[in-house]
Structures are given as structure tokens and as C-alpha cells.
């Protein structure tokens, strides 16, 4: 029987690597707690000082722990920092699946990832067969047919048996992301390619295998909606996405006053101008 995911137990997870993301993630988690008060949360913050390798402090109902990312990130202030940190996501989700998914069921896992800059305006309504192997995420359709279709990893749902095909997908995604952190690939997309392109490729390879899973392609506007147009708040999605990438990807934008204050994001009426908006600074529109 199909159910909405908000009627099912799930682990919500995210990590914030670099201090700029800490408050951002807190804001996201507050909206998750509001709409999914029963979901256990696994949240990481890093880097923790004093370790040679990049290490995150992890809080969950299981207690406090430290997870060491098994590759050096070698952050040097360049754009590569962002390209490496986002790829930690694949490894992180495989770890959560392995170590924490039992928080809701010993053998069957359901894990939801939300980016730190996501804000939930309601409970997730993704519909799933509760015991099926499922990957769900917003899907970008390449209307020009260049083969660039991709899952968008700002919000993801993974569901399946602990040792099932979705677990294998996560392990493969993790391995590929770690390999790319060590050796960043040449950028060959119209946008900076990241963990989501790695996941798209892995999903493609598993779609061609005998192992069976369902890929649910969610509407982007609803699940990673961008609320701003022409310097104004124009809409609210079920999950808003506030594009920290605009601040954190390039070295020259890291001091930018972005995203807007939390209060604006949560309470501003439709049509409210962005505080301090300058059309000349707007890169997204």
C-alpha cells in the first residue's frame, strides 16, 4: 500500500562542513523538526580541530561521535574546495545508511537528506511503497536532449533493505565520490558538476543491472524551489532552496551577504523585496 513519507519513520540527515554552513544547517533542521517532529536527526559539523584528516562531529540519538572522512580534502581557498566538499555527501549518506538507519528499523532503512540551505514549508509528501527499494530526488530534465538530465541532490530519499540494492547504490556513490575528491574530474557540464552528477551516473549504471529499484523523479519547483525572482520573494515551495552555492563556490563571493536573514526566509510575505537587494549583484536571474 502506497504511503506518504511523512507517515513513515525516517532518518533526516545533513552535514555542514565549514563554519559558514553551521547556522544554515540549524535553520534547515528547525524547519524539519517543525514538520517532522518524530524523525531522528543525524547531523555532522566539521572540521573538528586537532585531527589530521577531515573529521566531523556527529550528533544523533545514538550519541556524539566523530566521523573521519577517509580522504584528505586539501582545502586551499579555491573553487576546488566546494567541488570536494560537496562530494563528501555520497560518503556521508553511505555512513548514515550503515551506522544510523537502524534508528527507525533494524533491517530496513529510510534516510532523507536535505541540504543545509533547504527550508521545509510543510511535511514531505513523497509517495512510496513502504517496503520497496526506492531512490527519490528532484529531477532536472534536459529539454534540449543533450543527455544532461540529472537528479538534484538538494533533497534525496533513500529507502530499502540495509543490504539491498539501494545500499549498494550508496556504497558505489560513496566510492566514486571519494575517488573524485582525490582526483577531481575535468568539468564538462554547463554548471559546476558535483555529487549529484556522480549519483546520476551511479543510478544509470544500476538501472541497467538486474538489481531492481524505483527511481522517483520529483518536481524541482516543488522540492528544491528557488523563491526569489527580480529581487522579490515570489513563491514558496514545499521545500525552498536558498543556494548557498552562490556564496560558497567561488572565492570572490564568500563574503557576500547571502542568503537573506532567516526571518525573511521564513516569514516574509510574497512580493517582499530582498533586504539590501542590488540588481547589479544578482547572478542567479
Amino acid at each position: 500500500m502506497i504511503k506518504r513519507v511523512d507517515e513513515l519513520p525516517a532518518v533526516l540527515t545533513c552535514f555542514a562542513y565549514r563554519r559558514e554552513y553551521f547556522a544554515e544547517m540549524e535553520g534547515m533542521l528547525a524547519t524539519v523538526r517543525e514538520h517532522h517532529p518524530d524523525w531522528p536527526i543525524v547531523a555532522g559539523r566539521g572540521p573538528v580541530e586537532g585531527f589530521d584528516l577531515p573529521t566531523l562531529e556527529v550528533e544523533s540519538p545514538l550519541g556524539k561521535s566523530y566521523w573521519t572522512i577517509p580522504v584528505p580534502l586539501e582545502l586551499d581557498g579555491s573553487e576546488n574546495d566546494w567541488l570536494r566538499v560537496v562530494r563528501v555527501k555520497g560518503w556521508w549518506l553511505a555512513q548514515v545508511w550503515r551506522n544510523c538507519a537502524g534508528l527507525v528499523d533494524a533491517d530496513f532503512c529510510r534516510v532523507v537528506w536535505a541540504d543545509a540551505d533547504a527550508r521545509f514549508n510543510g511535511a514531505l509528501d513523497i509517495e512510496v511503497e513502504p517496503d520497496a527499494e526506492v531512490v527519490a530526488g528532484p529531477w532536472w530534465h534536459d529539454r534540449e536532449g543533450k543527455g544532461l538530465d540529472t537528479i538534484c541532490s538538494g533533497l534525496l530519499l533513500f529507502q530499502g533493505a540495509k543490504e539491498g540494492v539501494v545500499g549498494e547504490i550508496l556504497n558505489q556513490w560513496s566510492s566514486n565520490c571519494l575517488a573524485q575528491i582525490r582526483n577531481l574530474p575535468v568539468q564538462n557540464k554547463p554548471w559546476p558538476d558535483s555529487d549529484q552528477e556522480v549519483l546520476t551516473e551511479v543510478l544509470g549504471s544500476f538501472s541497467n543491472s538486474a538489481a531492481s529499484f524505483s527511481l522517483i523523479k520529483l518536481e524541482m519547483d516543488k522540492y528544491v524551489g528557488y523563491p526569489i525572482k527580480d529581487g522579490k520573494l515570489v513563491k514558496r515551495a514545499l521545500v525552498d532552496s536558498w543556494y548557498m552555492i552562490d556564496k560558497m563556490r567561488l572565492p570572490e563571493t564568500r563574503e557576500a551577504a547571502w542568503p537573506p536573514p532567516e526571518e525573511y526566509r521564513r516569514t516574509a510575505a510574497i512580493g517582499t523585496p530582498l533586504p539590501g537587494w542590488n540588481p547589479d549583484d544578482d547572478r542567479r536571474e
Binding site: 540519538p61 550519541g63 561521535s65
Partner: peptide, 15 residues
Amino acid sequence: DPSALGLDEVPVLRL
């Protein structure tokens, strides 16, 4: 579940 054993306050480093 470590919390069921009162072990959720024990710091763990996962490698």
C-alpha cells in the same frame, strides 16, 4: 541501540 545501554554519551571516533 547504544542509548538503550546508556552508552550514547560515550564519544566514538569512526574510521
